[in-house]
C-alpha cells in the first residue's frame, strides 16, 4: 500500500505491518487499560502462542490456529468467571497458565521428536518475512477496531466508566463486551508474529498510557494513542533497517522511552503541582 512512498519492498511491508499492528493494539489498549483488564492482553497473547504451536504441531496454518485458539479462550473468559465465581483476573490467570503449558509442552515435544520447531518468531516477532495476505489481514483488523469504536462509542465509554452502572442503565453492554473480547483475540493473534508474544503487551498498554499522560477525556485518548503508536513504530522500523537492529524490540523500547518522556512532560502533573 505504501509502495509508491517506500522503494524497498521489504521495508515497505514491515512499515505497513507495524503501523497496522500499532493502530489496532493501541486503540484496544485504551479500553483495556481503563477496565483493569491488562491481563486480558497477556492471556490472549499466550493463547495465540499456544494456538500457533498447536497449528505447527498439526502441520496446519499456524496463524489460523492462533486465531482460533485465542478466540476460543476469549469466549471462555466470561462464562468461567461466572460459573466458577472467580474474579476475571483469576480466570485469566488460570487460562494463561493453561496456554503456556500447552505451548511449552508442544514445543518441547516437537524438539524431542526432532521436528525442530522454531518458536523464535512467535516469541520475538519478525517483520521481515511477511506475506502480503498478512498485511491485508492486519489492515482489515485495524479498520475493524476503528469501526467497532465508532459504532459502539457510547457503550464503550459506559463500560470504561463502570460496568455495573452501565448494566443498570439498560445498555446491552454484554454484547459489546463480547465483541470487544473477540476483536482483542483477533488482533493479538494477527500481531503475534509481527511484534512477538512476549512484546505484544507493550503495544496494548504503553500507547494508551502515553496518551493518558496528556489527555483528559476518552475521545482524545482514542485519537492520541494510535497516533503516537503509529509515529513511533514507523520511525522504529525505519531506524531498525537503517542501523540493522531487531525491529520489534526496538519499537518496544522506543515506545517505552516515549512513555518515560511523556511522564516527565505530563500536562496532568503540571496541573496538579500548580494546584497544590
Amino acid at each position: 500500500m505504501l509502495e509508491p512512498l517506500i522503494a524497498n519492498n521489504v521495508v515497505c511491508h514491515a512499515v505497513e505491518a507495524m503501523v497496522f499492528a500499532s493502530i489496532a493494539c493501541s486503540i484496544l489498549g485504551v479500553v483495556i487499560s481503563r477496565m483493569n483488564l491488562a491481563s486480558i492482553g497477556f492471556t490472549m497473547s499466550h493463547a495465540a502462542f499456544a494456538g500457533a504451536s498447536i497449528g505447527m504441531f498439526l502441520e496446519m496454518n499456524a496463524q489460523m490456529a492462533a486465531i482460533a485458539f485465542s478466540v476460543g479462550v476469549a469466549a471462555l473468559i466470561g462464562p468461567i468467571s461466572d460459573k466458577a465465581k472467580m474474579a476475571a483476573d483469576a480466570t485469566l490467570g488460570v487460562l494463561f497458565a493453561l496456554c503456556m503449558a500447552v505451548a511449552i509442552f508442544l514445543i518441547s515435544y516437537m524438539q524431542y521428536l526432532g521436528k525442530g520447531l522454531s518458536a523464535s518468531s512467535l516469541l520475538f516477532g519478525d517483520v521481515i518475512s511477511l506475506y502480503r495476505e498478512e498485511i491485508y489481514a492486519l489492515a482489515a483488523v485495524s479498520l475493524l477496531t476503528i469501526i467497532f469504536v465508532l459504532l459502539f462509542y457510547k457503550e464503550i465509554c459506559a463500560i470504561m466508566f463502570n460496568m455495573k452502572i452501565a448494566q443498570a442503565s439498560g445498555m446491552r453492554v454484554q454484547v459489546v463486551y463480547y465483541i470487544l473480547l473477540f476483536i482483542i483475540a483477533l488482533s493479538v493473534a494477527l500481531c503475534l508474529n509481527i511484534v512477538g508474544g512476549l512484546l505484544i503487551f507493550v503495544w496494548l498498554v504503553t500507547p494508551a498510557s502515553i496518551a493518558s499522560q496528556f489527555c483528559f477525556d476518552v475521545k482524545s485518548m482514542f485519537i492520541a494513542a494510535p497516533l503516537v503508536a503509529l509515529l513511533v513504530s514507523a520511525f522504529g522500523v525505519w531506524a531498525g533497517f537503517e542501523y540493522t537492529l531487531p525491529i520489534a524490540p526496538l519499537v518496544a523500547l522506543l515506545l517505552t522511552g516515549t512513555f518515560g518522556l511523556a511522564v516527565m512532560l505530563s500536562t496532568k502533573r503540571k496541573v496538579t503541582t500548580r494546584r497544590h
Partner: peptide, 27 residues
C-alpha cells in the same frame, strides 16, 4: 457502593449523559 478513581476520564456532564444511553439503545 461505588468508587471512581481520580483518573476516571469522564466529567460530571458526561456521566449524567450516560443515564440516557440505555434508553437510546445500541448504535
Amino acid at each position: 457502593n461505588f468508587y471512581f478513581d481520580p483518573f476516571t476520564p469522564f466529567n460530571t456532564q458526561q456521566v449524567v449523559m450516560m443515564g440516557r444511553y440505555g434508553r437510546l439503545g445500541l448504535l
